[in-house]
Each structure stands twice: as C-alpha cells, then as structure tokens.
Amino acid sequence: MALGQTGVVCEHRLDPADAAWLRAMGLRPNARVRVCRRGEPCIVEVLPTAGGDGDGCALADCCCRIGLARPLADRVMVSAAPA
C-alpha cells in the first residue's frame, strides 16, 4: 500500500498470541488503517470505524498509531480502500 493510503485489515497469518495482542491494540479484522510509514518499522494509524465517511472519518483525531516490526507487518493483509 502507498504512503497515506487507507485500507481495511482483511486477514492475518499471525500466531495466536501476536494476533490477540494486535487485536487488543485495535488492529483487528475489518479495522480501517492508514499507512504512515512503510518498511521497518511499518507504522499505521488505526482509524475508528464509527462515523466513518470513506475518506478519513468523522473523528479523524480519534485514533491510535501502531508501529509494527517487519516480520509482523508482513503477516497482516490489508485491502486498499478505493481512491
């Protein structure tokens, strides 16, 4: 995904502990994310699903930012939202 692009977490190939950890941090299936940094580390902003308007969301500042080491980021599949 390109820098700044948003998408939806569709699947992952993580071990259960890592999956539970990411899920608890907000990176769960169907979570909307925006790519803030690619590579090592990969940084994504988890956008709230409530009040979403397709581009950003109603509460654009109401989100959290998660850094992922590459081995983890490589196992999280995100489908890009249409531009």
């Binding site: 803030c36 940094r37 902003e45 709230p48 009040g51 654009a60 500042d61 930012r65 850094g67």
Partner: peptide, 29 residues
Amino acid sequence: DELAGAASSGTAGRSRTGGVTDRLDRALT
C-alpha cells in the same frame, strides 16, 4: 464501536496532527 460513535461528536476531516506526526515518525525511525 457503536457506543463510541453514539457518545462522540467532532469535526470532520483529516487529522490535523497526522501530517506532523507522520513526518516526525518517519524521521525518528
């Protein structure tokens, strides 16, 4: 999610801090 949506109100639009934070994050990492 539903409760947060029902209880929250705010301005629409892209995060105003996101741009600065993105740049800082990219520089510091």
